[in-house]
Design a protein around this nucleic acid. Structure first.
Lengths: 126, 126
DNA sequence: GCTGGCGTTCACGTCGGCGTCAAGGTCTAC
DNA sequence: GTAGACCTTGACGCCGACGTGAACGCCAGC
């Protein structure tokens, strides 16, 4: 299939697929006329990339998964490099959640103090 | 005081202060020589901005707080607009935490499936 | 043969929050 | 009077993941 059809099937734009090509992430074959030619494996790969991006991975971090698929593995995450990136991402998410909890605490503290200040100003007892 | 001293006291760069000036966020007075002139209130404002940025606010979202201080209020968060932005940010944080929990669940699911796949491949019983 | 719908490459624009020059003006100390 | 430590504006660079448009090639159907 050509780039337009793959884009429709994978629900991305052709620009996105060309971008992946530029990055060497999804380097399809070329037809005699210079057109990019893709197959079902490429569709599978794009879907994998989009799933990972949806989980917060940078495109560069999806590379091990893509290569794992290209190596013939059923599951893109089953290669050592993929697993390492996966675990790293989990650690990042945990850190983010921790930081957000701290931030949330500080935000509510600020909200409470500001509300009290407004009540005093209005002469309202909290 | 001039821009360099304020930068030192607030632990930011002069570029940062000029950037705030460009945004109209911290428009100081000008001396006879064209130099920016700041006072203690400006220092307080910069510290407020940096604190808010540390809590994930965009610079534009700090504007209500800055204006609240300029209006003479003790607490930058005690004005209606500040409170609205504050509450909105709390909601954003809650959404982010929820999304990160979902992401974390999906990540561990992927990790589990990939590990099982590797064990089957190695002939190791999980 | 020509229109329309595909495809191609090149290359700049977007968003935020500055960093990092460059080219110059100002003020102080020696 | 001159070094150097401050200040000014202007303008491009950076990061990531594309959007957007220009200018062109290819091919099917009428």
């Amino acid at each position: 299939m050509r780039i337009g059809e793959l884009a429709r099937l994978a629900d991305v734009t052709t620009r996105t697929l060309r971008h992946y090509d530029e990055l060497g992430l999804l380097t399809g074959r070329r037809g005699a006329n210079g057109y990019r030619v893709y197959d079902d494996a490429d569709l599978r790969t794009v879907r994998e990339i989009r799933m990972l991006v949806g989980l917060g991975f940078a495109l560069e971090d999806t590379r091990p998964f893509v290569e794992c698929l290209r190596a013939g593995h059923e599951r893109a995450a089953s290669c050592p490099d993929s697993l390492a990136v996966l675990r790293r991402r989990i650690a990042e998410v945990d850190d983010s959640v921790d930081r957000l909890h701290e931030v949330r605490g500080e935000l509510t503290r600020q909200l409470g103090e500001a509300s009290r200040a407004r009540c005093e100003f209005s002469g309202i007892d909290p």
